[in-house]
Design a binder for these strands. Structure first.
Lengths: 351, 351
DNA sequence: ATCACTGGTGGGAGCGCTCCCACAGTACCT
DNA sequence: AGGTACTGTGGGAGCGCTCCCACCAGTGAT
């Protein structure tokens, strides 16, 4: 029963057929047992399991993938260069959540970076080859073609952070609107009233929602919305510094700032210091993300925490469901396939 | 020509057979073309390539893996929890190098964490299923059973940092011995003579080699080796602090310290400050790794830089070679399958 | 007794490739 | 002319699974 030719088999991993022979059953039965089908008698199942153990049988993934037309793998696609991925705790937390959701599954996780054009081309090729059953998409910009590609290939996908209010993909997001409100209301409750907002990149939907939250919190408090108190940032420290400088020039009497990210807040802090303003005595500062930066800032920064790990877990659960019922997502009603998780304000001495 | 049953084919990815029909050639010929075999006439090749393009053909990886008994994937196995992986720039640099080496290859990289027992069990299963053609092993401890498992499964592997002088696996390492010598010689050239050393975890071979380098540099300089100037650390900040405290007690006249890692140096720095010693006036300090910590320390830390990205690239090249000639590694002479890369001293104001 | 059913089971066919053998054609010797 | 040695090509067999159809008891209703 030699294999044909001199193919590089190293000594012989047992096959399902050999397990069947050993257990004295048919191939189909072994397949049923290893796939956990209920339509197998207890005695047979025990016999098969014994044979599996004796032979040290491990199913051949390639054969299974070929026959069943699935890969038992999903990809976490990060449309950023590795560098940013590692720099931000966001991704590490996300990964932890994804790992947790996958841990009692057969599913394998692939981590794919698509920061450069070259990497994106590889990714497209990879997806076209259907080497994954589903895709987890994080931090996707509004004009990214990736979701469309996925839809066209009919590969299930879940996105973290909808691209717009009209997002068609299933998504898991934190409550950017609510988080922003929490931040502003916190500042108001501390007796501040001239509260400025430095936004994130406004082509990111979540950044828009934070602006909305800021606006509504201000007007609900009867303070009205002074557009001059809003200045666009871009999630970077440099942007934060620049925006804060502009704001101080325009409104020297600002007594509080809500920044759309901790990094932005760090930039704002520098500008405030440059201008001789004390934190929090003269100006209170609140950031967003509750990252390591927030904890290590001088003074420690009040910040809005997003449940990132939880988001990773939820996204994964959602994706696994989609993969399991294997229908292209868009074709279904979006019922409750879009979830929003609550944020939490972590109060420190900057406010 | 319908597929049998109602298997979830979504509309029909073209198969190699269809490409063959379209190009008016046989299956074998198409296979030769897409695998870059030279034994195809130019005219035929052109015809096949045209058909591939028209049909948008992408080879089915599962079928290929099954027939050819390979997976076109290698794994980077990190025997640490995700947290440490992300905390240390080491891994991110390594990943960059690996990615670069893989970038003009069909090979896919999998990132696998094996920090917990549970994850290790999954990994073992994964490897047993032969889902990768080769494995890149980083930061493996001396008693790790993983390399043996790999050998037993006959899966090619390359290790970063040999486990001992008798390492049997192909490896790529930086010159720990030479790096340590550089550090110590640098301190001596600055006029220091009471140079202490805080070691790393001594069950890590590289840490041992650094001690060797320290010893030889001291004795070659005619200073002899005072064992009292050597104190064991464990690569952590806490360990560095503790060791430094001990050293200061034992030898209050120390005028320089070579720490086995930047993190260790950070701990040592704290202990020195606690004891009222100024850096570098009273005590000069040199670390190892040239991490972000070194650049941001107060004062900036002189450190030994390892070419991590380069190591990643070399490891990958080595592994690809091993995979390509597909013979189990141990069975071959280890010729020059173990390489050592030079380090570089980055001088800053701490020394 | 006959006729449904039901839970269990065996095994053929097929997934889309790669490998290799066979063979046609051409070229260059004897 | 016949041999030998290529290059280029077609297609059978097989990789190890899953799927599904056929079938074989039993069981209970008729």
């Amino acid at each position: 029963m030699a294999t044909h030719g001199a193919r590089g088999r190293s000594g012989g991993r047992p096959t399902l057929e050999e397990v069947a022979a050993r257990a004295g059953v048919g191939r189909g039965t072994v397949s049923r047992v290893i796939n956990g089908s209920p339509r197998v008698s207890d005695a047979t199942r025990a016999a098969v399991e014994a044979a599996v153990a004796e032979l040290g049988y491990v199913p051949n993934t390639a054969a299974r993938a070929l026959a069943a037309n699935r890969t038992d793998a999903i990809a976490l696609v990060v449309p950023e260069p590795e560098t940013r991925f590692f720099a931000e705790p966001y991704f590490s937390d996300m990964l932890k959540g994804v790992g947790a959701a996958l841990s009692d599954t057969e599913m394998q996780l692939l981590l794919i970076f698509a920061g450069s054009d070259r990497e994106r081309a590889r990714l497209a090729q990879y997806l076209a080859a259907h080497r994954v059953d589903g895709v987890l998409l994080v931090s996707v910009h509004a004009d990214d073609p990736l979701p469309d590609l996925l839809a066209q290939l009919e590969i299930p996908a879940v996105i973290s952070g909808p691209r717009s209010a009209a997002e068609t993909l299933p998504s898991v997001d934190s409550d950017n609107y609510g988080g922003a409100r929490q931040a502003v209301e916190h500042l108001l409750s501390r007796g501040r009233s001239r509260v400025a907002h430095i936004t994130g990149r406004l082509d990111v939907y979540g950044a828009q929602r934070r602006v909305d939250g800021y606006r509504d919190a201000m007007s609900d408090a009867g303070l009205g919305v002074d557009e001059g108190l809003i200045e666009a940032g871009d999630f970077t420290e440099e942007g934060g510094h620049r925006a804060m400088t502009v704001l101080l020039e325009r409104h020297p009497d600002i007594d509080a700032v809500f920044a759309a990210s901790d990094v932005t807040a760090a930039g704002a802090r520098r500008a405030l210091r440059d201008a001789g303003r004390r934190i929090p005595e003269d100006v209170a500062l609140v950031g967003y993300d509750d990252s390591a930066i927030a904890r290590h800032m001088e003074p420690p920064l009040t910040s809005v925490r997003q449940p990132i790990e939880e988001m990773g877990r939820r996204m994964t659960d959602l994706l696994l469901t989609e993969v399991a019922d294997r229908r292209p997502l868009a074709s279904r009603g979006l019922e409750r396939r879009q979830m929003v998780l609550a944020t939490e304000l972590v109060s420190r001495s900057s406010s």
